[in-house]
Structure formats: structure tokens, C-alpha cells
């Protein structure tokens, strides 16, 4: 076991443990906070895999933006801050079975497939901002630009959806 692995395993354990808490806790806000922990631990994992830029972007966007958005959502839907009893649907047993099945299958396949493969991390510069940025703008320009259009569209969409005054004008009586 190399040093990187020694660090990776506890980080992974933290990520996994906190993500389990995300899907099991009975308090909405805590779920969001546990998500922060999980995503942070994952950022650490990215660092260990020499993906420096990705790790920082993860922290910035996920922890900084997405989770904040989620918290806003929780507040706007007037969710109870404390414990709530009905966060899980009746589908829990089936969900557990499917999830365990997925885990079992994936782990089996993955372990079977990559038992001997190992990563040579090299000098660790493969994931620096410079390298990734050069790659992005040399080979991934078109997708990058498309993505910006997508973001714009999503922005417009979000606005349209959330503003009351530009929704459908006449509301039919059929809705309940």
C-alpha cells in the first residue's frame, strides 16, 4: 500500500460515510451539510489523483454554489428545520434491494476488471490548471462553447419557471 493509498482510503471512507448520512438522515438541512462533507472529501480524492484543477472547481462550484442553491431550495419550500418523519417514501425496501444489487454488481465487475491495474501518477502535473486549460482550449473548444449556451438556456429556463408573472396566463380549472 502506497502513501497515496493510505490517504485515499480514509478520505473515501469519509466521503462514503457522509453520503450514506445524506440519504438516511431525517433532517433536511443536515443532509445538505453532510453533502458538503462528502463533496469535500471527494475533492480531496481528486487531489490525490493529481486532478488539481478539478478538485478546486469541485470545491468552488459544488460546495460553494450547488449546496447553497439546495439550501435556498429547502428554505423556499418551507421545509421543517428540525426532524421530520416522512422523508422516506414507502419504496425504501425496494430501493435498498436495488441499491445493494447495484453496488454488488458494480463492485464485482470493477474489482474483477481492474484487480491488477495501477495508476502511475507521474510528476502530478497532469491535472494542473495549465495542462487542463491547454487541453480544454485546444481540443474541447466546441463543447465548451456549447456548454455556455446550455448554461444560458438553463438560466433563462430557471427564470421563466420561477417567476409568477410570466407563467401561463389563463389557468384552467382542471388543475388541482
Amino acid at each position: 500500500m502506497t502513501g497515496a493509498e493510505l490517504v485515499f482510503v480514509p478520505l473515501g471512507a469519509v466521503a462514503l460515510g457522509s453520503s450514506v448520512l445524506v440519504v438516511t438522515t431525517d433532517q433536511l438541512v443536515r443532509a445538505a451539510l453532510w453533502l458538503v462533507v462528502a463533496l469535500g472529501a471527494l475533492a480531496g480524492c481528486f487531489l490525490l489523483l493529481a486532478a488539481e484543477l478539478v478538485a478546486w472547481v469541485q470545491v468552488l462550484i459544488y460546495v460553494g454554489a450547488v449546496v447553497v442553491l439546495l439550501l435556498f431550495g429547502i428554505m423556499l419550500t418551507r421545509a421543517p428545520i428540525g426532524r421530520s418523519v416522512d422523508l422516506d417514501s414507502g419504496n425504501r425496501v425496494a430501493a435498498l434491494v436495488v441499491a445493494l444489487g447495484t453496488a454488488g454488481t458494480l463492485v464485482t465487475v470493477v474489482v474483477g476488471g481492474f484487480r491488477t491495474a495501477s495508476i502511475d501518477l507521474g510528476d502530478g502535473s497532469a491535472g494542473s490548471a495549465g495542462t487542463v486549460g491547454a487541453g480544454l482550449f485546444r481540443y474541447w473548444v466546441l463543447p465548451f462553447e456549447l456548454l455556455s449556451v446550455l448554461l444560458l438556456a438553463a438560466l433563462v429556463g430557471a427564470i421563466v419557471l420561477s417567476r409568477r408573472d410570466i407563467g401561463p396566463r389563463a389557468r384552467d380549472g382542471g388543475e388541482d
Binding site: 417514501s89 419504496n91 430501493a95 434491494v97 436495488v98 444489487g101 447495484t102 454488481t105
Partner: peptide, 14 residues
């Protein structure tokens, strides 16, 4: 119930 549908879907994929 969309969750049920999704469960079925994933179980099938599995």
C-alpha cells in the same frame, strides 16, 4: 409513482 417506475427500470437494468 415515478419512484416505483424508476425502481423497476433500474432493477431491470440490473
Amino acid at each position: 409513482n415515478p419512484q416505483l417506475y424508476l425502481t423497476g427500470l433500474l432493477a431491470g437494468v440490473l
